[in-house]
Simulated scan of single mutants.
Amino acid sequence: MRTGTWAAAAVVAAAGIAGFTAVGAGAGPGPAPALRFADLPKSQADSTVDVEIVLAVDISYSMDPEEQALQREGYVAALGSPEFLGALKQGMHGKIVVTYVEWAGAADQRVLVPWRVIDGPASAEAFAASIAEAPYRRAYRTSISGALQFSADLFKDSGQRGIRRVIDVSGDGANNQGALVDATRDEVIAKGITINGLPLVLKRPNAATMDIEALDVYYEDCVIGGPSAFMIPIRDRTQFKEATRTKLVLEIAGRTPELRVIPAAASQPRISCTIGERMWQQRWGRDFN
Rank of each mutant, 00 (worst) to 15 (best):
G4Y: 14
A8V: 14
A10V: 13
A13Y: 13
G16W: 09
G24R: 03
P33Y: 11
A34P: 11
S43Y: 02
S43K: 05
Q44R: 13
T48D: 07
E52S: 07
I59F: 12
E66C: 02
Q68Y: 14
Q68P: 07
R72N: 01
A77I: 00
A78W: 05
L79N: 00
S81I: 01
P82N: 03
F84S: 05
L85W: 04
M92E: 10
K95E: 10
I96V: 15
G105A: 15
G105N: 10
A107I: 08
R110L: 03
P114I: 07
R116L: 11
A124K: 01
A124Q: 07
F127V: 12
F127K: 06
A128Q: 14
A132S: 14
R137H: 15
R137F: 15
R137E: 15
S145Q: 07
L148K: 06
Q149P: 07
S151M: 05
D157N: 00
S158N: 00
G159R: 02
V166N: 08
D168R: 13
A174Y: 04
N175E: 15
R185Y: 01
D186F: 01
E187D: 12
V188K: 11
K191E: 09
I193M: 09
L198G: 01
P199F: 09
A208W: 04
D216K: 06
D216C: 07
Y218T: 04
E220T: 15
G225N: 11
P227A: 13
M231Q: 15
I232G: 03
I232E: 03
I232D: 01
I234N: 05
Q239P: 13
I252C: 12
A253G: 03
G254T: 08
R255A: 15
E258W: 13
A266M: 04
R278K: 15
W280H: 14
Q282S: 08
W284R: 09
N289S: 09
